[in-house]
């Protein structure tokens, strides 16, 4: 109010320059006043802070595999497995896998007619925990215009194989090639060696059992 009284008083002043200055000052003051008034109403909307840690992360991958597995002395048979991976960096990942296959009779059993295992014991089930590394990342071309991003990978791990009535400590190592179809999906081929000891044919021996599989995976 005081300012309003002040403005007309100054307008009558002969010194125009001074008047201008004063008007400017009053304008500023009224602005100040407005500002003060706006301060009374505190903004309730919180300023949105961009935090990239809150961006939706797709570091997990679930993979379904199907292929064949050779079990030493017990033939090569279809295998299916499920792998869950967590990608720690673009190069490193950890994974857990579970797989199962049914084995067939050994040559000895076929010839002699003897049976070494019951039907239930003939089922092979394994799980393993792996650390993996992506190798040679790059682009692969199909024809001239279609390109897919791809990488080789290697995994190394330990696990357990239930076969012939016992759990067997298993070392596993594999090599694979993964082609990224979409941000959220990939296909891979993988060859894996499952190394475990087996003693059912008399002597305790270390066997290398190879599986080769084709998989489809989803990132989430």
């Amino acid at each position: 109010m005081l300012l309003l009284v002040f403005v007309p008083k100054m307008a009558f002043s002969n010194d125009e320059k001074l008047a201008k200055e004063q008007t400017f000052e009053t304008q500023e003051s009224s602005e100040q006043k407005d500002h003060d008034a706006s301060k009374l109403v505190e903004p309730t909307i919180k300023r949105r802070q961009v935090d990239i840690a809150k961006v939706d992360a797709e570091d997990f991958e679930i993979e379904l595999f199907y292929g064949a597995m050779n079990v030493v002395d017990f033939g090569t048979n279809p295998i299916e497995s499920l792998v869950l991976s967590y990608h720690v960096t673009e190069d490193l990942f950890v994974s857990a896998s579970y797989g199962q296959t049914k084995t067939e009779q050994t040559s000895f059993e076929v010839i002699s007619g003897a049976r070494l295992l019951t039907d239930a014991e003939r089922n092979l089930r394994y799980y393993d925990l792996n650390a993996g590394v992506n190798l040679l990342p790059g682009e692969g071309f199909i024809g001239k215009n279609i390109a897919f991003n791809s990488a080789f990978y290697a995994v190394l791990g330990v696990g357990s194989t239930k076969f012939a009535g016992d759990q067997r400590f298993t070392y596993s190592g594999g090599l694979g090639y993964r082609v990224i179809l979409k941000d959220w999906s990939a296909v891979s081929v993988e060859v894996k060696d499952h190394v475990f000891n087996i003693d059912i044919l008399g002597k305790n021996k270390t066997t290398h059992n190879l599986s080769y599989q084709l998989g489809l995976s989803f990132f989430f």
Binding site: I52, V55, E58, T89, D183
Partner: peptide, 10 residues
């Protein structure tokens, strides 16, 4: 910024 994978952002 749509989403992330490891230390990459789409």
């Amino acid at each position: 910024i749509l989403k992330s994978k490891t230390s990459w952002y789409k």
